[in-house]
């Protein structure tokens, strides 16, 4: 059995043994072509707002998956409430980003018509919900950063951002308290709940570092007084997490592999599926009003 007659080998190019003729490289042949995930931002201010907004949109989307399926009716209410707060904040932030960008994109266009690589959320928020312990631990880790971050953003030189931050800080304070209460209940409750929470914390730990990851965008905005440098909040985050973990008798894992890339559009494989669901109807009817 053979593969039939092989085609004649080309004299040069792919598959040829003959040395290729040397041609000068074109302008584009050997350089880093800028793409959605190059980590270069034209407008750091817009980029920063997208980071804040996308964290909230995607975590809100994930939390809303719980609706009707929570372990107790009170949690159906609470998780929906947190999701609603986060999506509300995302909506305001995206609207502001669209205005500053100046290309006429609305908050809906930014939410529904950007692809995965244009999203700027941390990978932490795009992971599947997992069980209730993972869901709670994620809200806890996320909110533990948002409270000090939003406190700083309330003093932003961007008055619109400052206004959104003032509203969001009150909400984040509630989210942190709610998730923190459950950290205590699950950590202190039964052997099973303790084991599940410990496992959840270990599973999520590689993803928490990205919350306080920063780059030139943060440098630029810290310089202009629009935003605080999120890297400087790592200590405050760590001590508030340690306090609750200790009370919940949960051991924080040693740092190992650290996820990175969400802030420049390099995500886990999960985000595409989140967006496929979020955007499906809207993209099926481009231009329609709902």
């Amino acid at each position: 059995m053979g593969y039939g007659t092989l085609p004649d080998e080309p004299e040069f190019g792919a598959g040829s043994d003959a040395p290729a003729p040397v041609a000068p490289l074109s302008d584009r042949a050997a350089k880093v072509v800028r793409t959605a995930t190059s980590g270069i931002a034209d407008n750091p201010h817009v980029e920063y707002l997208l980071r804040l907004a996308d964290d909230r949109l995607i975590l809100g989307q994930r939390l809303s998956e719980w609706c009707g399926h929570a372990p107790i009716l009170e949690e159906d209410i609470a998780l929906a409430n947190i999701a609603l707060d986060l999506i509300g904040e995302a909506s305001l932030l995206l609207a502001h980003a669209g205005e500053l960008e100046g290309h006429g994109r609305t908050n809906d266009q930014l939410a529904y018509f950007r692809d995965e690589t244009a999203f700027r959320n941390v990978q932490l928020v795009e992971l599947p919900n997992g069980d209730f312990a993972e869901t709670i631990a994620r809200v806890f880790f996320f909110s533990a950063l948002q409270v000090p971050l939003l406190e700083q953003l309330e003093r932003s030189t961007d008055a619109t951002l400052a206004g959104i931050a003032a509203k969001a800080r009150k909400e984040a304070t509630y989210h942190l308290r709610h998730a923190g209460d459950w950290m205590l209940k699950l950590g202190d409750g039964t052997d099973e709940s303790h084991a599940r929470l410990q496992r959840a914390v270990e599973h999520l730990w590689p993803y928490v570092h990205e919350l306080t990851w920063g780059d030139a965008v943060d440098d630029a905005l810290a310089a202009s007084g629009v935003a605080a440098d999120v890297r400087l909040l790592a200590g405050a985050w760590r001590s508030s997490v340690e306090r609750v973990a200790q009370a919940a008798t949960i051991a924080l894992p040693a740092d190992g592999w650290k996820a990175t890339g969400g802030r420049i559009g390099r995500h886990t494989e999960h985000l595409g599926h989140v967006l496929a669901e979020l955007q499906s109807l809207t993209r099926a009817h481009p231009g329609a009003t709902w």
Partner: peptide, 27 residues
């Protein structure tokens, strides 16, 4: 709840979430 994650605009998503949350509250 089947349509919260696919609501076609942010405003519709929020009002549907709030509605379903109200229903849990009524229950």
């Amino acid at each position: 709840g089947n349509w919260i994650t696919r609501a076609p605009s942010l405003r519709r998503k929020m009002t549907l979430l709030a509605k379903v949350q109200d229903e849990a509250g009524h229950g």
